[in-house]
Simulated scan of single mutants.
Amino acid sequence: MTKVLVITEHAPYHLSSLKDALDMALIFAAVDAEVAWLFVGQSIHSLRKNQNPRILGMKDVFKSMKTLDIYDVDQLYVSQQCLEASGLTADCLVLEVKVLSSDEQSTLINSFEKVVTL
């Protein structure tokens, strides 16, 4: 089984980066890859509770993110440094994630065969 890590860096409403990352994760999961997702930079805001993208005229991708575990995409990670810089905690997020230090992120990235950064 191929191990794939999807890394997102951009804010949730930056072009279609969040939807592209979600699609990528689900496509890899559909072909029986082991998929994990790491949120760094502004992408951590993708996980904030109580978002309403419809106000901006955008599709609600966040509902689809809540179904990731159905597709066995249950390894979700967030940069501790980015979380703290944004003044957020794991309790502020809509999905259960593991918070990683910079060293842990490096270890995680090196443990995957394929890494896709969006």
Rank of each mutant, 00 (worst) to 15 (best):
40 V>W: 05
49 K>H: 05
23 D>L: 13
21 A>Y: 10
26 L>D: 02
33 A>V: 01
38 L>S: 05
18 L>E: 06
17 S>K: 05
18 L>Q: 05
17 S>M: 07
34 E>Q: 13
35 V>T: 14
25 A>E: 00
26 L>S: 02
22 L>R: 08
41 G>V: 09
39 F>S: 02
50 N>E: 11
37 W>H: 06
23 D>H: 15
48 R>E: 08
19 K>V: 15
17 S>L: 07
25 A>R: 00
23 D>G: 09
26 L>Y: 07
38 L>N: 01
50 N>S: 12
39 F>C: 02
48 R>A: 12
52 N>I: 02
54 R>G: 14
36 A>N: 00
23 D>P: 06
28 F>D: 11
31 V>P: 08
38 L>H: 01
32 D>E: 10
36 A>K: 01
52 N>E: 07
30 A>S: 13
29 A>C: 10
50 N>P: 02
18 L>C: 13
36 A>T: 05
35 V>G: 14
26 L>M: 07
24 M>C: 11
19 K>S: 13
48 R>C: 11
27 I>K: 14
26 L>V: 05
20 D>A: 08
45 H>G: 08
49 K>A: 09
25 A>T: 00
29 A>R: 03
40 V>A: 06
49 K>W: 08
32 D>Q: 09
15 L>P: 02
51 Q>D: 02
22 L>G: 13
41 G>Y: 04
37 W>M: 09
32 D>G: 05
37 W>F: 12
53 P>V: 01
25 A>G: 01
18 L>I: 07
43 S>Q: 09
15 L>Q: 06
34 E>M: 06
54 R>P: 06
52 N>H: 09
23 D>K: 13
32 D>N: 10
27 I>T: 14
30 A>V: 04
51 Q>R: 00
49 K>V: 12
33 A>F: 01
17 S>T: 08
30 A>R: 06
23 D>Q: 13
29 A>G: 10
16 S>W: 02
43 S>I: 08
43 S>T: 11
31 V>K: 14
26 L>T: 02
45 H>M: 07
52 N>A: 06
21 A>N: 11
42 Q>T: 15
40 V>G: 04
42 Q>G: 14
53 P>N: 02
51 Q>A: 01
20 D>S: 09
25 A>P: 03
17 S>Q: 08
41 G>C: 06
